[in-house]
Design a binder for these strands. Structure first.
Lengths: 208, 208
DNA sequence: AACTTAACTGAACAGTGTTCATTAACTGTT
DNA sequence: AACAGTTAATGAACACTGTTCAGTTAAGTT
């Protein structure tokens, strides 16, 4: 039996999360089980339930760390000279982060699908922070637009980057080499921004 | 014991798939289990394994039907007068199909993530068919582009529509009402097409 | 040393996918 | 009509899963 207070609550939690991430990275999300995580840190199954509400809770905490890592990666792009370059940098960082941590990234999105309880509000907040970055750059390019239109544009553009990332990771729908996805986000951003003329935004009707 | 040949192989398969789809629609992907499907059609678990290789196989066959349904929905948009209207119609149909059959749609994409065996080649083929439709419209708009650039553009644009769809289904990252996602795909297509000038495509370098 | 408290365990429960020896029902032959 | 052959169908069994909780054990307190 593990000695009481061999490790503090925080240490134990950290150990468990790290072990779970290793398991995830090496064997994928399907291999993530309470018993395996418990074994990896040298505790019994029951002990995990003193630290985490359940497996879902553990997954959410992994997702929190994943998301934080993503934000860090994005932050390194903040020095790019122009809004356009910054947006491309974000997209590129997003893409490579997702590829580097493919299993963690998959967990982040597959897990939100499990319809038990809501996504915790910190997740919402972190994502809002990401969108704020995008919106800032878009607003700089289009100061004449209303905040609502900027928001809509940010979500449109970023959903698109997300879609490219997701399909890139999942399969061989993609021909071409390593750079295909990168090329796609670049051209997407270029064309979207070039096609964004003030006239067509505010109404929303089909005018073409 | 169910009488031998009460139902033919094909009938049984059809019954099982229909039962599984009902289960999926009503209770979501997590509730899909071999025992439940077997019970729903009045057979034992083992009988399912005479019809399907395993649960994965059953899921793939559901996915095949889902994809076929999607293609049907897209086909109803083929009469739109212009390529641009056709592309918007496809996107709109894609979006509403995914929303109507949200659980089936989720299965289609979550399942490709399970990294057992490859996605069957018919799936690849059906998806290729979808992309061919998009490419045809894009080629009509940009006859001067090479096939490679058309392909790249089709995948870029469609990954984007896919991304918007996915995020729309998953959560409340989306403000606004029912029409927000529709508005997003419309403006995406408009801006992407408007920003697509022949000069910036063939090289692929960063020129902006 | 005795008592209290809380950390920790692991057996147990209900569920999962999958297999396979056994059984039941049909088919064809004598 | 009786027997053998074939095969559809079963359901118990195995190894796993998440989750709970009565018990056990160690640490802190009096």
């Amino acid at each position: 039996m593990a000695r009481r207070s061999d490790h503090s609550r925080e240490e134990l939690q950290e150990m468990a999360l790290t072990a779970a991430e290793t398991l995830l990275d090496e064997q994928g999300g399907a291999a993530l089980s309470t018993r395996k995580v418990a074994a990896a840190i040298g505790y019994s199954v029951g002990a995990l339930y003193l630290i985490f509400k359940n497996l879902d809770d553990l997954c959410w905490q992994i997702n929190a760390r994943t998301l934080r890592g993503l934000m860090n990666a994005l932050d390194q792009q903040v020095d790019a000279p122009t809004p356009r370059a910054r947006l491309k940098g974000y997209a590129s960082a997003y893409l490579s982060y997702a590829q580097q941590w493919s299993h963690r990234w998959a967990l982040l999105f597959d897990h939100s699908a499990s319809e038990g309880d809501e996504a915790p509000e910190w997740l919402q907040a972190t994502i809002a922070e990401l969108f704020t970055r995008i919106e800032a750059d878009l607003a700089e390019l289009h100061p004449e637009e209303t905040p609502e239109d900027i928001t809509l544009a940010a979500r449109t553009l970023w959903s698109s980057v997300h879609g490219i990332t997701q399909l890139k990771l999942r399969d061989k729908l993609f021909f071409g080499g390593e750079s295909a996805a990168q090329q796609m986000t670049d051209s997407l951003i270029d064309r979207y921004l070039d096609g964004w003329t003030p006239s067509d935004a505010s109404v929303g009707g089909v005018t073409k």
